[in-house]
Write a protein that binds this DNA or RNA. Structure first.
Lengths: 220, 220
DNA sequence: GTCTATAGCTTGATAGAC
DNA sequence: GTCTATCAAGCTATAGAC
């Protein structure tokens, strides 16, 4: 037998995936410039040089971290939206259902077993308020945004396009602010609440946003 | 006359204030680790070493940038709240008024002539979603938060303390997300709207948040 | 208070052997 | 694909003259 064992240093996932997992975890904890590609390599049990081999630059690594998750997340949101639509006879959905289809998949992934998704959700919570992150995420979130804005328009026909856009931004802000788990709630409540108690937040969030969106409408 | 001219290199503000102004402008544009104290010194027309003389460390410089503004902002918010209360006979204010007292001062400062305040408002919009920023801002925003949460409690007596805390967090999230001017709205609207059109946002924001807060309440 | 100079590290990127 | 070694540039913090 001439077969010589390849013996990969780490048996589990492919190197590229391990680097993405490590970067995801670190970017969820620290801002872009505070994370070094050396830390990423170390956490991934890979060598520094491999970052360059797979991603060429740190910015591209960051973008790939987001892109890997956004595709699946967008699919889940659209699936839920489609399901709600198939259950409704009328053309327009209740606003609550649209809000739910946007936020619920994020909540479920965040409460699931996958640590990677937990990290992504926390990271995602910070993307919306940063110019730099939005630039690196260029185009990743826009298709979903357009679809949900149009859906909101059907349910709130008296709203102008501009009002719908602001409303959607408010929705995203509440969702992001809450899921980023910055620890703000712990401080407000003297430790009684944990920002990781996302289910409680979700139960308050959906009625909050739905009622808010209706209130923007000129015809109340 | 034995008086010898002191001849300061730059006539205007004291060095410490110029460094704070410069840091404020740069931290408004870039994340903490992306701003170097060299840039700060250069923009302030001062020497690198003076950062250490006045602030000892970069983190303390950041904290002082926030602290300088927060004191005045908190005063404006409390003034407005007190004015609304003096205009109302009943014990509880309409929720709208509480929301206004929190957000309106920020809007007015942002629309004013002072570029420093504009920078601060943009920076402030990112503080709430970042663990690191909140740590550096330790305690700066908490007194205002407690006062406004209690005020909300009087207007929404059927809400639990936990619900009020989530509601306040949602309020802050919407405010922050909008005032951070990340350029998200421009992308959503294909350039038709500008995130700097904050007046339009404000007109939608107050009814949105007020209706949202009422919807959290168990007794609608 | 303000200046210069620099110590002591860390960074992202990459070249080139295997 | 993976490894080592290193480059050139940047950083914060600080010492010490004036």
């Amino acid at each position: 037998m001439t077969m010589t064992a390849k013996k990969p240093r780490v048996p589990a996932a492919a190197t590229r995936e391990r680097l993405l997992d490590a970067a995801e975890a670190l970017f969820a904890q620290h801002e872009f410039d505070a994370v070094t590609i050396r830390e990423v390599a170390e956490l991934a049990q890979a060598r520094l040089g491999l970052n360059h081999y797979y991603f060429k630059s740190k910015e591209e690594l960051f973008r790939q971290v987001l892109a890997r998750r956004v595709e699946e997340l967008s699919k889940l949101r659209l699936d839920m939206l489609a399901r709600f639509r198939s259950e409704t006879n009328t053309a327009a959905l209740p606003v609550e259902k649209i809000v739910e289809a946007m936020i619920c998949p994020l909540l479920e992934l965040s409460l699931g077993q996958d640590e990677g998704w937990k990290s992504y959700v926390r990271l995602n919570g910070r993307v919306a308020t940063s110019e730099k992150y939005l630039r690196m995420a260029e185009g990743l979130y826009d298709p979903i945004a357009q679809i949900f804005i149009e859906e909101l328009g059907r349910s709130l026909p008296s709203c102008s396009r501009a009002q719908l856009e602001w409303g959607f931004l408010f929705l995203v802000s509440v969702m992001s602010g809450t899921f980023s788990e910055s620890g703000r709630v712990e401080r407000l409540s003297d430790g009684a609440q944990r920002s990781s108690d996302l289910s409680a937040a979700y139960r308050a969030m959906v009625p909050f946003i739905a009622a808010g969106l209706r209130a923007i409408s000129p015809e109340k």
